[in-house]
Amino acid sequence: MRIIGQDDIPASEITPREVYLKRRQFMAGIAALAVSPAFAAAAPPVRGARLAGVKPGRFSTREAQTPYESVTTYNNFYEFGTGKFDPAENAHTLKTRPWTVSVEGEIKRPRLYDIDELLKLAPLEERVYRLRCVEGWSMVIPWVGFPLAELIRRVEPSGNARFVEFHTLHDPAQMPFQRSSVLDWPYVEGLRIDEANHPLTLLAVGLYGEVLPRQNGAPVRLVVPWKYGFKSAKSIVKIRFVEKPPLTAWMRAAPNEYGFFSNVNPKVDHPRWSQAKERRIGEFFKRDTLMFNGYADQVAHLYRGLDLRKFF
């Protein structure tokens, strides 16, 4: 981009240092923008190991599944960067073994589960669910996992357990973007106990029949298909049963934009995105967003009598 030749006055000699540095920063910014995924398409992703003994499960949709490539390269996982392509590029630093999940709080049997133990806790099922992101796009993903209710049953919640809190790993060495203050780490999400116990709610350990890729929340994540994607916490290390509604990461960040429930609802707009329609990844035209992401028959009764505009 330099038009002037080599024997010219260096820019640093005629420009105040501060301006020069700012300009360098600006140029670096431009260069980064220009080169980022540059002129080349990304290399095909490395596939995970196949999971054995996976049976087809309930509630699966027959809609066309979003290609593996899209599911694993277009992600929101701020622990690895805020760009959609960042997680696929950066998540290799996450170590998924050894891994433990602490299950604690208002339960009779608190316990530290080893991930391999957790994987064998209940039979693995394939569930093909719609995923609707709060940003207005959606996918159809064949998850592998088991209902969270299987775990809840085993730990025997007490009468005080009215909510469940999920914590993502907090380790900036493995999750480099946690060094930024974009969110107040660790990432915390929460469900009401009846939502957590709902048969649709899944603890997922894989997708497309294979071990969950890191950028999708390995080694274990939540999948709550009738809520916006951010409710489904990734790379979980702690599940805590509590009496009060948890203060989630996004509620802390922007309480007027993100409510506790965050049910998919085409009638309640987010200030930045209309929620009436969505772009299904891979499709050209937008489609109408369905109440509870199309799972109204299964979940609408959980919210009977609740003003969903107020409790968004």
């Binding site: 220009a34 995924p37 540059a38 002129f39 080349a40 398409a41 990304a42 979003t66 490539e69 899209s70 390269t73 277009y74 959609k84 392509f85 796009w137 772009r279 990844i281 891979g282």
Partner: peptide, 22 residues
């Protein structure tokens, strides 16, 4: 014109990612 050219080249090679319109 380079940024436009880049979009065209990426578009023809399927390099615009999962959400090309975005």
């Amino acid at each position: 014109l380079a940024p436009l050219l880049r979009l065209v080249v990426l578009g023809l090679n399927g390099g615009l990612g999962a959400n090309p319109i975005e």
